[in-house]
Design a protein around this nucleic acid. Sequence first.
RNA 1: GCGUUCGUAGCUCAGCUGGAUAGAGCGACGGACUUCGAAUCCGUAGGUCGGGGGUUCGACUCCCUCCGGACGCACCA
Length: 583
Amino acid sequence: MKHIREQWKVLLAGAIGQLAREKGVELSPAAADIVVETPPKPELGDIGFPMFSFSKALRMGPPQIALALVERLAGATAPGTAKAVGPYLNVFVDRAALAKVLIEEARKPGYGSSASLSGTKIMMEFSSPNTNKPLHLGHLRNDVLGESVSRILRANGAELLKINLVNDRGVHICKSMLSYMVYGGGRTPADEGKKSDHFVGDYYVKFNELKKEDEKAEEKAQDLLVKWEAGDPAVLKLWKTMNEWAVGGIKKTYERTGISFDKYYYESQIYLTGKEEVQKGLASGAFFKAEDGSVRIDLSPLGLEEKVLLRKDGTSIYMTQDIGLAIHRHDDWPFDRLVYVVANEQQYHFKVLFHILERLGYGWAKNLYHLSYGLVNLPEGRMKTREGTVVDADALLDSLRDLALEEIQAKGREEAVGDAADIAEKIALGAVHYYLIQATPAKDMIFNPKDSLSFNGDTGPYIQYMGARISSMLRKHEKGEGNAQGGTVRPELLAGDAEWELVRRIAAYPEAVEQAGAEYNPAFVAAQLYDLAAAFSKFYHDNPILNCEDKDTAATRLALAAAVKAVLEHGLFLTCIPFLEAM
RNA sequence: GCGUUCGUAGCUCAGCUGGAUAGAGCGACGGACUUCGAAUCCGUAGGUCGGGGGUUCGACUCCCUCCGGACGCACCA
């Protein structure tokens, strides 16, 4: 569809130029100057070109321009027919021809993928959990965004490296350690039959109790950190044990949600890097030494104050680490772009970080991107650890899975579905991931538990359901049932409005994938999938497919359904929603 | 106070680089299963696109201003 639009743009640009010459007017628009649009109703055409903007120069009313252009384009070889519709020049494409191509293309494996980013190496950092507690709903948004954008970029031809920076050191880690030392009694997750990250998280929560009992708790945690940095063997041993529990449990959740990484970085291993880089910057004059001995950068070019990069005692801070880490990573794997999926509360941090790297003279610094996303809030407001309102990722998935299972049982579909528990789990995942991805990343969103439990309407399971229904039809056909047996696929039968509605949505899909990649926004894919699923649902409700009396029509519609299925499979994968053959 | 960002139907969200009567879902109300799986489909009600200016042939979309919310403005991560 895109290439057809481009062809028309070129034709129109030429025709407008010609018209201008005839009128003795100076005007020769480029193809890029032609505005394209999709008419609100199919009856009006498939592609629309508003003529308003040329009105003044040509001293003609837009409707007259449209008419004049149609006349001049009458002889041109172009895909489709131009028609003047008021102030618009609308194109009616050759539906049968396009349907023929799409039906074939869409059923091939790579439909929706492109090469628009081929040759581009992109590193994607996301998730970045703390090792003192299990993942919560906010992490799920981060994870699914990172994973989905990665898949989308890869579908657009990019070479991807997904990395996870585990925050496994710091005073917050020491708090859960201290709490365990006081209350743990040497118990292990296995002793309590608990998922290991939750086990660790519970001690982190218990630190609040400890603070009430021991007013020096904060101080003690700080001491623990000092000992950790000094390499105290006992402290390191406990730290290692608890981190393994935490990371092990977190990885189980990744496995459950289908998130994966090509490489893990651990903060404990790299938190000291960056100091050297700062020294280099000091030597090159990018930074300066303040009177108190700390190293700083002047951020007035950004309209900001100065920022400390090394404390006066020479120790590093968060920013120092990130400077070192970025450089280290580029050495590891020379990327063209590096995307950080991090919540929007760190916008300032990344703005400054990118600026600093640029000042240090790294050319790739201009290709760093902070994929900033908003908080997931509850209807009552922000999630708060202290108030216990944090929605735990595992618990959320569990409850959704249980509800889906009940639904399967209520419909008596356990037999038909195969492994009911597994299907229920996948429906739960589809529900959560779709919910998190349909909203624009930049915006804060409200997670309404009640709504999220619904599998109806604009949801992941709705799309999964349409995929399952089509799969079911195709299975029947393969078993020799239905009227499509022996029928011939005739694309001209897809020229009707109902079929065309589906064809044009299939045609629009690859563009959505490309746009999603260009804007790091999987919501475009999600929206496209929902529209396609809804269009199909309406279509097959009104039009018999396997039961259609005419063999050829049945076969053709089935081929269309198969094309829809292929797009759904492709798109669901990109949005981290499992495709289901049955549910 | 300064900066960033958001404000679209009762609720949750779309609205493509400004373009043809502002769209979905949920909720409400009313319909549709002896036919391909009703986790479905159809219909009705519901919006001065936060307010006010401006640019434009045309503004939900761009600019200014005000109001309201979120998040930042650490030698914490």
